[in-house]
Amino acid sequence: MAEPHHHVIIGSGSAGFGAAKTLREGDPDCRITMFTMDAIPFYHRYRLPEVFRGRTDWRDLLAKPPSFYEENGITLRRRCRVVDVDGSAHVVSLAHQETVPFDSLLVAAGGRAYLPENLSGHAHLIHGFGSFEAAMRVYNDLPRGGRVVMIGGDMIGLDLLLTLLDTGYRVTLIVNAQTFWPHELTAEQRAPLLEALRGKGVDVIENARAVGISPQNGGAPARRVALDDGREIEGDVVMAFCGLATSVEFMLRAEVDIERGLLVSPELQTTNDAIWAAGDICQIWHDGEKAYKFYHGWKNVRVMGQLAARNILGAHEPFDVDVEDRIWVDEDGEIQSTFWTRKP
């Protein structure tokens, strides 16, 4: 009896999870191994703001209970960092020195929060929100009714921002280029959106850059943010939501083409026949634009995961590279996006 086909997925986010699920649906006999740096199974990261609504047990956020993986024969390798992919030998190497051979590899490692370079020296004073534990840290560090100073304010950040407002916190938003990322907006496009935010009670600071963050040792609020115009703003927590940056160093030996992300065909296949990519890490060939483009947003990501899985199993479906990219304020004054749907 031949060895079952081994599908390895790097990343257990929306793309990875979706791919795994799809692979299993499409091939009951294959082996599926999913690597993630996370400690817990897949949960929708966009639901992290719910911790402010009292959903502080991570289990409440899971897309599927842990048993799902065992029931579906999906090996979920958590806290595993892939450090190398050998594209010709078809082996994934993990940070802890384990090597895992694959027949097909789907890279859905996503991206990490991007921090503007001028703030990188202050990263330790900035609360992240990329994981449940980061979210919990914010939750724990933020006094009831306290203030969050948010730098940037991408679509993920805005979700949190709105939730914070809903739950009685205060937010100061320091607007920058990545505000409303991944939507790329002009100043005009951005104005009504900011207005809507102000309307919800957000302190919006425009035309000023945060240049320094200092802790207020023992004092409250805990953070002081210096702006380039000389102003200083205080907050209990400083957060930066400036979009995502991909981490593709581990793919350098994978015999795949890399630009900022992994370059894939519309079918999400990389230049290595055994390797696919999906989600925030990949740049998909837009034949019209003759360019590889990122397609962020959870809806896109989910689609990519399932699509990649199908294609791995033999389908040749292309990704719709022309998906709608639009953001607006609806009649209720809520910000809406074709990429992001906020689910309170």
């Binding site: 817990i40 842990p66 065992e70 595993c80 802890h96 020195q97 384990e98 090597t99 051979p101």
Partner: peptide, 27 residues
């Protein structure tokens, strides 16, 4: 567990391959 082994192991040679999804890994 130790997540910085000093010698390579084959697939499954690391405990992380065997931790059930409901168990919490601390490497």
């Amino acid at each position: 567990y130790d997540d910085h082994l000093i010698a390579p192991v084959a697939e499954g040679g690391h405990i992380s391959a065997h931790i059930r999804p409901a168990q919490i890994p601390y490497g």
